[in-house]
Design a binder for these strands. Structure first.
Lengths: 230, 230
DNA sequence: CGCTGTTTTGAAAACTGTCAAATCACGTGG
DNA sequence: CCACGTGATTTGACAGTTTTCAAAACAGCG
């Protein structure tokens, strides 16, 4: 498989940062990237280790997490397809990046990619745009976590997952499967597994949702969730 | 005052994003920026309003905050001199930016600045670097907030302020004044004013700190704070 | 069909939030 | 320079929620 066909089969070639490049520049960038498939649970980047790679997520889902020395996990971000991972300009990685599901990545060497930033100003601008989005998302998570009450956090989380599952942001999916385990959701929301479970049963009793197995969710009353989330 | 002298008197001209430019380009960028002085408590940018300006902080301190519809404030970020504010590529601002102290800004019109990004690739790269730092800080705040227990959050906050007050990050100041009110600290940590106050007195009773008035802090036992923070 | 790990449920303890009042700090004016 | 007034900070008591520890129910998988 040559470099050009790599991009041709890229499932996110329209939305990814590289899309800001013209065909010729893009072909040159493609020569620097290599595909990599990782399995669910695999560690993509590791905190503390040398930060010598960047990557674009082609398919699947990743989590950015930090582990306290007591082993408790804290989720800092979820990465969806077309997302970019790797801490730019940092000598060592501060966080772990772990695959939530089997995933495909397009991996770049750090120094080659940073040289490409110099050569392709449009790429820098596209990454700047994505970085600004990531910052906004991180701050949304801060606002979510400081929200009083576990129920509001769970409701807001469910709505956000429904939006991510739906094809357009305006049309949240009425039915979807959570890509995270209970422990991961709890680590994301800053609550315990038990409280999360209790709030889910409580929301189900109130008729806002219905659970289908451990990970399936039906949104019965999105409006009720919206109200609970604020 | 002409444009060149503006940069000559810029107190952060070494560290700011513009520093990535050569003299000629920098002079051209300076022509786009205007100085603005704001007083403590003044709103620099307002959530919901048109997002038509960016700014660099020259001196003072700013807070990025979000207000729930019940009026409760949530601090999302603190901006120090040489910091950049303004949500790039967003049509409307999502957050409020408010001066914590009297501050000096260098303000740029949005469209002019974005055109400058196209003309000066180094500027885009410098902003990318700063944006990555902001993202790291936001995620540190997430990790801080998900920390169990109010005492750990307060201890971690005090250490972070000590590092910010000290001239080098490795030499935290043993004595400093908090730039934030109790309400602002509480909004930053995701706890109430009362709990914050209780933890401060508790830390003082344990001999970790000593309070000098409402805002003065003496670090008596940094090691004890470090241990409490984890 | 049985097994293993995850999820849910239960009860008690610890913590934080809420409401209310006292104290303190700081700027203003005498 | 000191007294005063206003707002911020601290303290107290209590209610509510969350965490913790422990056990049961469940789901997924060989």
């Amino acid at each position: 498989m040559n470099e050009q066909s790599q991009c041709n089969t890229c499932p996110v070639r329209e939305r990814v940062a590289c899309a800001a490049l013209g065909p010729a520049d893009r072909a040159e960038l493609a020569r620097l990237g290599t595909r990599r498939r990782v399995r669910k649970g695999a560690t993509v980047f590791s905190a503390g280790e040398g930060n010598d790679q960047y990557a674009t997520l082609l398919s699947g889902a990743l989590k950015v997490a930090s582990f306290g020395e007591d082993g408790t996990e804290r989720l800092l971000s979820l990465i969806h397809p077309a997302g970019f991972v790797g801490e730019m300009f940092a000598p060592v990685a501060n966080h772990d990046v772990i695959a939530l599901t089997d995933s495909d990545l397009c991996v770049f060497g750090r120094s080659e990619y940073e040289r490409a930033l110099d050569r392709f100003p449009n790429l820098a601008k596209a990454l700047l745009k994505r970085s600004a989005q990531d910052l906004l998302e991180a701050r949304s998570l801060i606002a979510l976590q400081s929200r009083r009450g576990a129920r509001a956090r769970v409701a807001a989380f469910l709505l956000s997952m429904a939006r991510a599952a739906g094809h357009s942001a305006e049309r949240p999916a009425k039915q979807f499967a959570l890509p995270l385990s209970r422990g991961e959701i709890a680590a994301l929301l800053g609550i315990t597994i038990e409280t999360l479970s209790r709030q889910l049963t409580s929301l189900e009793c109130d008729g806002a949702i219905r659970r289908q197995g451990a990970r399936g969710i039906d949104l019965l009353e999105p409006a009720l969730l919206e109200q609970t989330a604020r």
